[in-house]
């Protein structure tokens, strides 16, 4: 059924983990005390730290990510309003560092969604009904198929649903380009804008205070 063509970065089959919690905030995804890093890498082991580890540092056997069947799963399926709270991009870096390539939920917080798209962690928004079905269909070996170009998610029972991706984000991901390049390309327009709009505030650099 699936797997007849080789997986690519943006079209792949993967096992999934179900975290049925709603309103997972970015403080849970990566607690603030890990934000003293000046790198984007190395946060994977601390993802969901306070749910994932007991006070003595050992893995919490009750937390879903620690179950044997969760190892190697590349898609996280979670309750609605995933990624709310703090703007910390570290949350996305931590999830990617923990091996996730996509998160499926019925809604995502705005800043998290943008951060995720910018880092190639796909925020896959599905209806509450599809989310509930995906959770109920879960077995240790069941897989979903993600296809960014088609913007579809195929459930373990073969049902395929589409998910929204901003066209520009899709273009950037599929073509390996990024927003920075596009923004630098608008530099002339920014210069025209600056010439037409004089700043009303005296700046620190100009030396008030």
């Amino acid at each position: 059924m699936t797997g007849t063509t080789a997986d690519t970065q943006w079209k792949f089959n993967a096992r999934y983990v179900v975290l049925p919690t709603e309103n997972v905030d970015t403080d849970q995804i990566i607690p603030a005390r890990f934000l003293t890093t000046t790198d984007r890498t190395g946060l994977g082991p601390s993802a969901f730290n306070d749910w994932r580890y007991l006070a003595d540092g050992s893995p919490n056997p009750d937390f879903v990510l620690n179950r044997p069947e969760s190892q190697g799963a590349e898609v996280l399926v979670a309750g609605h309003n995933f990624g709310c709270g703090s703007s910390r991009e570290h949350a996305v870096w931590a999830l990617a560092g923990a091996g996730f390539r996509a998160v499926v939920s019925s809604t995502f917080a705005d800043i998290f969604r943008g951060n995720a798209l910018g880092n190639g962690l796909l925020p896959i928004q599905v209806s509450p009904e599809v989310l509930a079905k995906l959770m109920s269909l879960h077995t240790p070996t069941s897989t979903v198929k993600v296809d960014l170009e088609a913007s579809t998610l195929t459930l373990p029972d073969g049902e395929t649903v589409s998910f929204p991706v901003p066209p520009f984000s899709k273009y950037c991901l599929l073509n390996g380009t990024d927003e920075m390049g596009f923004l630098l390309g608008t530099s002339d327009d920014a210069a025209k804008y600056e010439a037409a709009h004089r700043s009303s505030f005296s700046t620190l650099a100009a030396g008030a205070a």
């Binding site: 703007s87 910390r88 991009e89 570290h90 996305v92 800043i111 943008g114 951060n115 910018g118 880092n119 927003e179 920075m180 923004l183 630098l184 608008t186 530099s187 920014a190």
Partner: peptide, 12 residues
């Protein structure tokens, strides 16, 4: 905004 966007604003 996220840190990647902080970079966008710094640069552009």
């Amino acid at each position: 905004i996220g840190t990647s966007q902080v970079a966008h604003v710094l640069a552009s």
